[in-house]
């Protein structure tokens, strides 16, 4: 059974310029209650890998460089 590729917009965005993941920072990935953030293998920066967001904001609030921004998911907005 084949799987469809079903893209969605993501509520959490990361500013690659500000993200310091290459220095070993994993704060946003660590604090997410739903474990939806991960390192993007292409950029080496944090990104939202799964669209499963509670828009709760620890990722944004705890980020040491202000790189993370949480928007309300489109379906709710």
């Amino acid at each position: 059974m084949p799987f469809a590729n079903h893209p969605t917009s993501v509520p959490v965005t990361v500013d690659d310029e500000k993200c310091i993941a290459e220095k070993g920072c994993r704060v946003c990935i660590d604090v997410c209650p739903l474990d939806v953030l991960a390192i993007n293998p292409a950029s080496g920066k944090a990104h939202m890998k799964y669209d499963e967001c509670w828009y709760c904001m620890p990722c944004e609030v705890d980020c040491p460089t202000g790189a993370v921004k949480v928007e309300i998911p489109y379906l709710l907005r």
Binding site: P33, L34, C53, W54, Y55, P73, L75, L76
Partner: peptide
Amino acid sequence: ASGYLFGTYENPA
């Protein structure tokens, strides 16, 4: 009602 699986009142975890 939004249809968003994780748009719950409780923490969806």
